[in-house]
Write a protein that binds this DNA or RNA. Sequence first.
DNA 1: AATGAATGAGGGTTCATTCAT
DNA 2: AATGAATGAACCCTCATTCAT
Lengths: 200, 200, 200, 200
Amino acid sequence: MQTKKEVVQKAIVQAASKEFLDKGFEKASLRQIVKNAGTTLGNFYNYYDSKEAVFASIVGDAYNGMLYLINHHDEWERRDELWEIQDVEIWRRELKILIQPLIPAITTPFVILIEGSAGTKFSHAKEDLLQILESHFIEHMDEFNPHYQQAKIARVLAEQLVYALVMIVKNYEDESVRHDLIVEEILFFAIGVMGILKAF
Amino acid sequence: MQTKKEVVQKAIVQAASKEFLDKGFEKASLRQIVKNAGTTLGNFYNYYDSKEAVFASIVGDAYNGMLYLINHHDEWERRDELWEIQDVEIWRRELKILIQPLIPAITTPFVILIEGSAGTKFSHAKEDLLQILESHFIEHMDEFNPHYQQAKIARVLAEQLVYALVMIVKNYEDESVRHDLIVEEILFFAIGVMGILKAF
Amino acid sequence: MQTKKEVVQKAIVQAASKEFLDKGFEKASLRQIVKNAGTTLGNFYNYYDSKEAVFASIVGDAYNGMLYLINHHDEWERRDELWEIQDVEIWRRELKILIQPLIPAITTPFVILIEGSAGTKFSHAKEDLLQILESHFIEHMDEFNPHYQQAKIARVLAEQLVYALVMIVKNYEDESVRHDLIVEEILFFAIGVMGILKAF
Amino acid sequence: MQTKKEVVQKAIVQAASKEFLDKGFEKASLRQIVKNAGTTLGNFYNYYDSKEAVFASIVGDAYNGMLYLINHHDEWERRDELWEIQDVEIWRRELKILIQPLIPAITTPFVILIEGSAGTKFSHAKEDLLQILESHFIEHMDEFNPHYQQAKIARVLAEQLVYALVMIVKNYEDESVRHDLIVEEILFFAIGVMGILKAF
DNA sequence: AATGAATGAGGGTTCATTCAT
DNA sequence: AATGAATGAACCCTCATTCAT
């Protein structure tokens, strides 16, 4: 029946999510997944066509969300007046609102997509995100201080920002905790970037 | 005899380093390593007892160095007066010197140890480093501002600092470039942390 | 009820026939059959007990017909006077009539039986037919020329005659085309056999 | 050692040849092959990269030989004067010589190539051969009797000629027996074709 | 009559490791 | 010191069939 099917399907998705999160797509074992889901290997294929199919079903939305963000990155926050503000508390307050629409995207599937998609058709996702962030940073850094010497750091910053988001999701499950930490992370990030770009 | 042996051994270590760096211990293929090293599977075992043995020989020094740093972390730089300085350029200059002894530790074996040791007896190394950093951060943050609310960010900061160092090594081979970027990263990091802790 | 059942059953038989014809019994996929029949795996077993059962229902009549022909092969055409005729056109005309009763037997189920029954209880059918034909040929050849040296060719001739009929059915769907080609084939066959048996 | 390796390799090739001959590429089971070869599945991959690789090593020469014959088919026998000869015994004698160079090509690997290559990169081989034969036949038939009505039989004839060669190899292992039967088959074939084309 | 979830055996393939030579 | 054949477990996937609903 429908009911039973959904139960097993959810069990598979949950077990698969954990496995993909822990080991990534390639090292993930279907045998382990179905064992944890309480079903059998053969039965798995009544629900998904392949290991990659269940992966896609898990990260699909996160991927499309990311694509949307990337394709609309020119509409990202242009709250340039913020950069003049010196009061961190005001920053916090503003960021908390600014970040709001991003929160639903920063979830376990997003982490799996970024960290565990090697060997799948999504393997380029992480690089796509990093490149858009890197060029975004370089652009901002150049606006802010065209004489800055260490433009190469942009790549490293992009990687660590993405990684920070990933780690927040991995370490903390509570949504409001995640929200606070993402705000704090971006605050930290913005201040750090500004700091290395100008005296203060 | 001795000479030839060393040549092969070096070839194995080099090929294995590249493989471990690219794929991590578990995904690394011994067949690929010996092929790139120009020897055979059987002969590999004349040099190392196992896949893990060659891994250990590669990351061993980095691990011990890391252990030393961890065990002597109470002797870490306490240039507290720096925190009063507002001029970023002075920070840069001082950090460049301060960082100097750390540079030799931030190498490919270190990256392999941190990123690729899952499945080996070194798998706890990353966590050990992260915990010492995390508690170190918490300590400093508490000194700096005992009223700060988001202590949980310490964990995330620790992870991203380590990750940033890893990325610098992975993305840039030139040593002086690495040095500059590490300085810049730590500068960015310090400013960011200070920023979220207090108004400025 | 009855009506619906027959519709489904016919759909199954039709889809199965195509699948068995294309791939033979063993390579045929039940999943493919039910998909093409517009029903489900489970429902298939309300109509047939097994993959082999539907196979049997398809080839059963062809098999019994073949059995009948084999068991009554001593009553086969003995139009011995034909062998004296030299005019091919007369042969054609006579064969066209002689072949008539055979035509309804040379159909898709017959082809499936001969070509696709490996792995079923009908797997011996092809061999049975070949043996009767072979001994039939040997008998005729011996009558015709007792000094002929290559009696072993009888086996090969039997196989290729059967195969030719199979190919005619497989390649041409139009019944009158089939009829013409069967006549031509048997004509070709008879002339060839006579040819290698004697000068003419 | 080399010796041992060759023994196993030969055992694999022999067992695989039998399996491919009996079941064709797709239905052939590697597990069955290695069992009959007296080795293990894992070890098989020390000798061949894949199931298809061992298949290719078996049929490769036969395929190249066939390609050569196809590409040089315009140089095939043009012993047109033979067609005027009425004495079958002379035909036999001439064919025996004419066929000689073809014999080494008509072997077990050839049979596997023609009958068992579905699912491999050689799957088109049979069709290639059939098409060249069919057009060859049509050409000759048209020369011989431009008014002949049943040109469609050319396809059927091509298929049964190839099949006859396959059956000769499958049924008889002795080389001289094969030679005699191939001669007889082609003799039968030529006479049959001539017969349906003209009165005699 | 119909669904499709569940099972278990088998398919080809890759792997680190052992060992006789 | 060097070879690579041999092993056995694990990998993802497909299959015909059964059965509760």
